[in-house]
């Protein structure tokens, strides 16, 4: 599933919605509690206590083992945690590290019992600056139930989902483009779109108004329910300047900046490229193209296009 990038505020809103779902039941374990798996586990852990196999019970710390999805199982089954992890991945926080795991055991489980997990998202905190990078702490609670619907074990689990600091370091090493846009939750969708090769035009989810530059409220109907459409990428040059002087940081003069009229009904500013300056003219058809300026920024630009 492709998830759109979210702002800090939107991530918190999503976490709030997912937490409000309460405890969500997962898929029952594929296999019942069984002797071979207990034996592997005891071997792997170096646990020589014979009591488990003699009594036919599993070590309590194996709780998580019984309901793991497996390498080829339905790993992406929808759950509050998976939904939130997906959103964090898409919003630029792909790194993950577990920071807390606290297990509670209600009773031993016996060979032959089949467990079912249930997950409750409890908290999202951040963004916070950590040694690994900026990220969010997500916390959830898993409870394992037996076939009588009684809890047998529980676990509080917390991870840090982060934007690896290594990436930030790399961008400092590479010459950073000096003309960075300011971005907030009203405009992030646009800049995230151009990173993915999409020219996104804000659309009111209620009345359908297209708007650029965008803003938090629809000026036509007051709706705060914002969406976007991906523009066709065609445009017509409405006006332009050829900048000669003074020098502009990060740019070689002369260069062309234009106001481009889109068939979607909005205008947008961008550079006109791949065209001799003397051939630039109001009314010329253009097609959007994307230029990476540095590790952080992609700018939409405009090249001569088909009429």
């Amino acid at each position: 599933m492709s998830v759109p990038p979210m702002s800090d505020q939107e991530l918190h809103e999503l976490a709030g919605k997912l937490a409000a779902l309460g405890e969500v039941r997962g898929t029952p374990a594929r296999d019942p509690v069984n002797e071979p798996m207990i034996r592997h586990w005891l071997d792997a852990m170096g646990d020589t206590n014979p009591a488990y196999l003699e009594k036919g019970v599993a070590p309590p710390a194996m709780a998580q083992v019984w309901t793991m999805p497996g390498a080829r199982g339905p790993a992406n089954e929808r759950s509050p945690v998976n939904d939130l992890m997906g959103a964090l991945d898409a919003s630029g926080y792909p790194g993950v590290v577990a920071t807390n795991c606290e297990q509670t055991y209600h009773r031993y489980v016996r060979i032959g019992e089949r467990l079912t997990p249930a997950t409750r998202l409890t908290d999202l905190a951040g963004p916070k600056r950590t040694a690994l990078g900026v990220g969010y702490f997500a916390t959830w609670q898993v409870t394992w139930y037996d076939e009588a619907d009684e809890p047998v074990a529980g676990m509080l689990f917390r991870v840090l989902k982060f934007r690896p600091a290594a990436r930030e370091q790399a961008s400092q090493e590479r010459a950073a483009y000096p003309l960075q846009p300011a971005i907030n939750q009203d405009t992030a969708y646009f800049w995230e779109g151009v990173q993915q090769g999409e020219l996104r035009i804000q659309t009111c989810a209620d009345c359908g108004l297209h708007r650029h530059p965008p803003g938090p409220l629809c000026p036509a109907c007051r709706s705060a329910d914002r969406s976007y459409r991906v523009a066709s990428g065609h445009g017509i040059l409405y006006s332009y300047v050829v900048h000669h002087h003074p020098p502009v940081p990060g740019r070689e003069t002369p260069f062309v900046v234009g106001v481009v009229e889109l068939p979607e009904g909005v205008r947008i500013v961008g550079n006109v490229v791949d065209c001799p300056i003397e051939e630039v003219a109001i009314g010329m058809p253009l097609r959007v193209t994307y230029r990476r300026m540095d590790d952080r920024l992609v700018l939409p630009m405009w090249a001569p296009g088909e009429a």
């Binding site: 405009t187 900046v257 500013v269 700018l299």
Partner: peptide, 8 residues
């Protein structure tokens, strides 16, 4: 930010 990144 809709203009300055383009050198305008």
């Amino acid at each position: 930010s809709w203009h300055v990144p383009f050198g305008l």
